[in-house]
Design a protein around this nucleic acid. Structure first.
Lengths: 340, 340
DNA sequence: AATAGTATTGCAAACGTTTTCATAAATCTT
DNA sequence: AAGATTTATGAAAACGTTTGCAATACTATT
């Protein structure tokens, strides 16, 4: 019953079992129309019986695609990236590709290492998060002529094909909302912007917008927090316990905003009456917090799906056209912001 | 400057550039001690100049390992799996492996497809979540003789090597805690248990424990919610708006518990005075909610790391020893449970 | 029934490595 | 200084596929 094939069931084992040549077996997989229905059936049966599984590494050696796409992210353990990864993975899976995943912990040096590692596996393409990468990484990609793309950021002059959102606009939208509500004393909590162009763009735009509106943000109102609810909560707590506290907190992302919200609850501050809080991202859970978090929605799922679809199309196309897609941002008005 | 190698820089291109034979180049990579320092330097320089990147697919054809490990999860977009994936990925990376990731959306049929897909890539091992898998999957793994392991669940009689926690114990701990606090009317919110042995084990243990303590759980107190804060919130809302409401909610995981917590806030119920809530998992963010969520901690990071380390050791060992590791659970007492 | 197609199959080369074996060069013995 | 080791290198086979080309077996034409 159990086909105890010792060792390797390869295409020639199948051929032998079906009493045909290896070529015919190969053709049955790759050009079924070229082989007669009768032999095809024989072969299919042999494949079944022996439990043959195709060897893509061997196929690859004939110029066939490896069928893998590499994705390098700063971190997996992160609501927003998890969502992008999931959507991207699903999309490329639909096109017959498998995901090779690596993370670098916001270290552009390690990003290079990871890209290199993926290239040893001859991925058919490599997707990176953001548009800021080390010189070495770019050179490697160019040199190997591996299709590459950027996810999450959009820029009209991006060097790589990209699918993402305009983070500057996101920052501006958040700032404008607060200004429109009459806030003049605004606290900022952002992640470290080094090696993180997403956060940097947002912060720059916020600062510009605020300045244009005549709102100054003294150093004491600027705080830094990593991507962690608990540490954001600490940072917010510090900001809120200053002698005079700001009337609003603008947070670099929703995780930080959630931390800020908890900090406010901890301080006994009513949101939005005594303190407004706005985030950026609209992560899972942001709608369910009480009160619901006002934020700027970045459609992670859409970005991931679109990125996967565009990239696989690009890779499989005879005449690949570079693409740059800007996903719409949406202002999500919920319960954490109010007029001053 | 830019080495415009058209097409393929392979080992023979390097050999030519360094004026040695391909064999010597190969040896420089695999057995550096067998080649003289002088030639080694020549070769290294040629590699640099040409930007040669090794081709693991070609190496693989000589019985070398592919250097990839497949991981199949129900979903990536899920706090707890994201954390496991991250830790697992980091651990195998340290051992020189790369992660091939696939998800199946809690569908055991698709799990089989994914495992198969990974095997076409000749992964050196495949890790699955949980111990419950389709007959076909098990057969495939046995037939291909691919090393396999289970993550997240522990059972002393598990067929696969595993690193995980005892979900029955987790359920029992949560239930015992509530009983000890004097709760007799307890509502249950769990995810669908089909194809999800983690959830099923927890639920079974909860029911047993409660029964042993003489606490009955009528059907009206049992509710089902998927892994989503918002849907859990809805389910909890329904439970809490019944004519008589339970004094405590025992939730299948922390995401559901968070939804329940928000539902309570929405209903104006004070936690833990009027309603106790307990979760299972201790996800990121559970500590920061206000009040902090009482839960049973399942150490996802530890599990992922241990799994990665054990598995790579297992794969690379000459004499692999199957392993079964049970990670300690921890009762995390925070602010959402109180005596009745 | 002979000719020309057409459909089906097999042979052998190729893909980029690694490795065994053999050879050549250098070093050591006495 | 001749043989015996040791060290460094190359030639060629092998890994599991795919594919161009050639060969064979049909089928349709006349």
């Amino acid at each position: 019953m159990a086909p105890k094939q010792k060792g390797n069931v390869d295409i020639v084992a199948v051929a032998k079992a079906a009493k045909v040549s290896p070529s015919t077996v190969s053709r049955t997989f790759n050009h079924p129309d070229l082989v007669s229905p009768a032999t095809r059936k024989k072969i299919t049966r042999a494949v079944q019986k022996l439990g043959y599984v195709r060897n893509r590494a061997a196929q690859m050696m004939h110029g066939k695609r490896s069928g893998t796409i590499g994705l390098v992210v700063p971190t997996i353990n992160h609501a927003i990236f998890a969502e992008v990864i999931q959507a991207f993975s699903d999309a490329i899976d639909r096109a017959g590709f498998t995901l090779l995943l690596a993370s670098h912990g916001y270290d552009l040096e390690r990003e290079y290492e990871m890209v290199r590692k993926l290239m040893e596996h001859r991925v058919d393409g490599v997707a990176l998060i953001g548009l800021e990468h080390s010189e070495a990484t770019s050179r490697l990609i160019a040199q190997q002529e591996t299709p590459a793309m950027a996810i999450w950021n959009y820029a009209e002059d991006a060097e790589l094909p990209c699918v993402g959102a305009d983070n500057k606009l996101a920052g501006r939208m958040a700032a404008e909302h607060l200004v429109a509500l009459g806030h003049r004393d605004i606290g900022l909590i952002f992640p470290d912007t080094r090696g993180n162009d997403r956060a940097r763009h947002r912060l720059e735009a916020v600062l510009e917008t605020l300045e244009a509106a005549g709102v100054a943000v003294p150093e004491g109102r600027k705080s830094e927090a990593p991507y962690s609810v608990s540490q954001a909560k600490q940072a917010a707590l510090a900001l809120l316990s200053a002698p005079s506290r700001p009337s609003a907190l603008l947070c670099g992302n929703d995780v930080i905003a959630q931390g800020a919200l908890y900090a406010a609850q901890r301080c006994g501050l009513r949101v939005p009456e005594q303190l407004s809080v706005i985030g950026i991202g609209d992560f899972k859970g942001s709608a369910e917090v009480e009160p619901g978090l006002t934020t700027v929605r970045i459609p992670a799922g859409t970005i991931g799906t679109l990125a996967g679809e565009q990239f696989t199309a690009f890779i499989t196309s005879e005449t690949p056209e570079p693409f740059r897609i800007c996903c719409k941002l949406e202002h999500v008005l919920r319960g954490t912001t109010g007029a001053v």
